[in-house]
Simulated assay, not measured.
Amino acid sequence: MYDLGDLVEMKKPHACKANQWEIIRMGMDIKIKCTNCGHIVMLPRRDFDKKMKKVLVKKGE
């Protein structure tokens, strides 16, 4: 699965052409931050689970 601080790849790239996001908040909603431009998006956990493709880097690695 995924955890706070992990870098994830979403199914669709962001408008800035990057597709790497950092999870910065978890709860009922998940807040992610684009690692390229710094844009922050908040998604319901259910939507995040549908739109996430894979975990790129775990926080501890």
Rank of each mutant, 00 (worst) to 15 (best):
M1V: 09
M1I: 06
M1D: 12
Y2A: 00
L4N: 03
L4H: 07
L4Y: 12
L4M: 07
G5P: 11
G5V: 05
G5A: 13
G5I: 03
D6N: 13
D6C: 03
L7E: 14
L7C: 10
L7G: 07
L7S: 11
V8I: 14
V8Y: 04
E9C: 12
E9R: 15
E9F: 02
M10I: 03
K11D: 12
K11E: 13
K11V: 03
K12L: 07
K12T: 06
P13M: 01
H14C: 04
H14T: 01
H14P: 00
A15F: 12
A15D: 13
A15L: 11
C16Q: 11
C16A: 09
C16L: 09
C16S: 11
K17L: 12
A18K: 04
A18I: 00
N19R: 03
N19V: 00
N19S: 03
Q20G: 07
Q20Y: 04
Q20K: 13
W21F: 15
W21P: 06
E22P: 04
E22H: 06
E22V: 10
E22W: 01
E22Y: 03
I23P: 02
I23A: 04
I24T: 11
I24M: 02
I24D: 06
I24L: 01
R25G: 02
R25P: 00
R25K: 15
M26E: 09
M26W: 01
G27K: 08
G27A: 08
G27H: 08
M28F: 11
M28V: 09
M28E: 13
I30Y: 10
I30F: 07
I30N: 06
K31A: 15
K31W: 10
I32W: 00
I32Y: 01
I32K: 03
I32M: 02
K33E: 09
K33R: 13
K33Y: 03
K33D: 06
K33N: 06
K33F: 00
C34E: 14
C34Q: 14
N36P: 06
N36D: 14
N36V: 02
C37D: 10
G38P: 07
G38A: 04
G38Y: 05
G38F: 04
H39Y: 13
H39P: 00
H39I: 08
I40A: 11
I40R: 12
M42W: 08
M42S: 15
M42P: 10
L43T: 05
L43C: 07
P44S: 08
P44F: 03
P44T: 05
P44I: 00
R45Q: 10
R45F: 01
R45W: 00
R46Y: 05
R46F: 08
D47C: 03
D47Q: 10
D47H: 05
F48P: 12
F48H: 08
F48E: 08
D49Y: 00
D49G: 01
D49R: 05
K50S: 08
K50T: 10
K50N: 11
K51N: 15
K51F: 10
M52D: 07
M52T: 12
K53M: 07
V55C: 03
V55N: 08
V55L: 04
L56S: 09
V57R: 14
V57H: 12
K58Q: 09
G60I: 09
G60Q: 15
E61C: 09
E61F: 06
E61H: 11
